[in-house]
């Protein structure tokens, strides 16, 4: 049992890494095409990782070495663990029943915390500024994210499904068709909020302020090089897949196999493929298009934006779901 679980986990993590790098390649290629450029070849992220892996780790003189080295490992492990809790297409999460959505929320926050820790541990002005910005960013987007998750979970629970916070249950119960018109509006608001939170969670333009290449030269990553940087890069790739999978699990958990009446292995393959397409669509819409269509915002603008409009929208979605419960039951 345990052995099987280890094998499955390893397969999921490796698959996630592969997928994450492919998505990164697609992201770069499509962003380049939207800007009228040719862009790097699809395999560029793989080449980048291979190159970084053979490069030296440089540790700044004023750094706290153990923390500086621990941060990227922590980020990668946390990002990998998230994947084990998320349903991947037709496949149930590897660690079903051993943790719930609340844990996923916490695990999603860990890579950001690790990056901030690494930034502080590097002990240089740019990385310290980057780390401060990362903390402010987290304080801004975590609340709307939590509201979205709570809204979905609560509405699922009121429909009589339990255990309440289990991802398998939530993704097994597509809410769109089970709620009334008010509920659909509420869900749409929550989906919108989650799509706005996604690039912030992944530190992409317009929310890439902790790294902000032209301002603070890479911010909390500025002192990282070699293997450590590669680990952060991989953690980012995994997080991209995880955020996409989370959006899919919460809002678009539909499969194709049921529609076409497929069974067995074919059904599994079709559902996994459809899942990959859905994740790609989410990443493309909320990361790639957004990052080429906007300028980088400032940290106070981001904080204000998340605390007021986005949180209000998320709370409005929640209220609509509550009203829907009162009407539909």
């Amino acid at each position: 049992m345990i052995v099987q679980m280890i094998w499955q986990s390893a397969a999921v993590v490796l698959g996630g890494l592969l997928l994450g790098l492919v998505y990164k390649g697609l992201d770069r290629k499509l962003a380049a095409r939207m800007q009228g450029r040719i862009g790097p070849p699809l395999r560029q992220p793989f080449l980048d990782v291979r190159k970084l892996m053979v490069k030296e780790n440089v540790v700044p003189r004023d750094a706290v070495p153990w923390l500086f080295h621990a941060a990227p490992i922590l980020a990668l492990v946390a990002a990998a663990t998230v994947l084990l809790y998320l349903p991947l297409g037709g496949l149930a999460p590897v660690l079903t029943g051993r943790g719930d959505l609340i844990l996923v929320l916490y695990l999603l926050a860990v890579p950001a915390v690790a990056m901030a820790l690494g930034g502080f541990a590097a002990g240089t002005p740019f990385s310290a500024v980057g780390a401060q910005r990362e903390i402010v960013m987290m304080m801004s987007y975590e609340f709307p994210l939590a509201v979205v998750v709570v809204g979905i979970v609560w509405r699922t629970a009121t429909l009589g499904h339990s255990p309440a916070f289990s991802l398998a249950v939530v993704s097994g119960t597509p809410l769109w068709s089970l709620v009334g018109p008010l509920g659909v509006l509420g869900l749409a608001l929550l989906l919108l909020c989650l799509l706005v939170v996604t690039p912030a969670e992944l530190s992409k333009i317009p929310f890439d302020i902790p790294e902000a290449e032209t301002e603070i030269a890479g911010g909390l990553l500025v002192e990282y090089s070699g293997v450590n940087l590669a680990l952060f890069y991989l953690a980012d790739a995994l997080k991209t897949v995880a955020m996409g999978a989370l959006v899919v699990a919460l809002f678009i958990p539909y499969g194709l196999a049921g529609v076409f009446g497929l069974e067995g292995l074919v059904a599994g393959i079709v559902d996994v493929a459809f899942f990959l397409v859905k994740v790609f669509a989410v990443v493309f819409a909320s990361v790639t298009v957004v990052r080429v269509a906007m300028a980088r915002l400032k940290v106070d603008q981001v904080a204000r934006g998340f605390w007021i409009p986005i949180t209000t929208a998320a709370l409005a979605g929640l209220v609509l779901l509550i009203l829907d419960k009162a009407v539909v039951g």
């Binding site: 380049a32 095409r33 800007q35 009228g36 450029r37 040719i38 862009g39 080429v292 269509a293």
Partner: peptide, 23 residues
């Protein structure tokens, strides 16, 4: 609107001259 430009460029040939080869 910038999105219109982006989508138009996404589906048209990149401006870059591929000299001496694409990559």
């Amino acid at each position: 609107m910038i999105l219109k430009v982006l989508m138009a460029q996404l589906f048209s040939r990149p401006v870059t001259n591929r000299f001496p080869a694409k990559y």
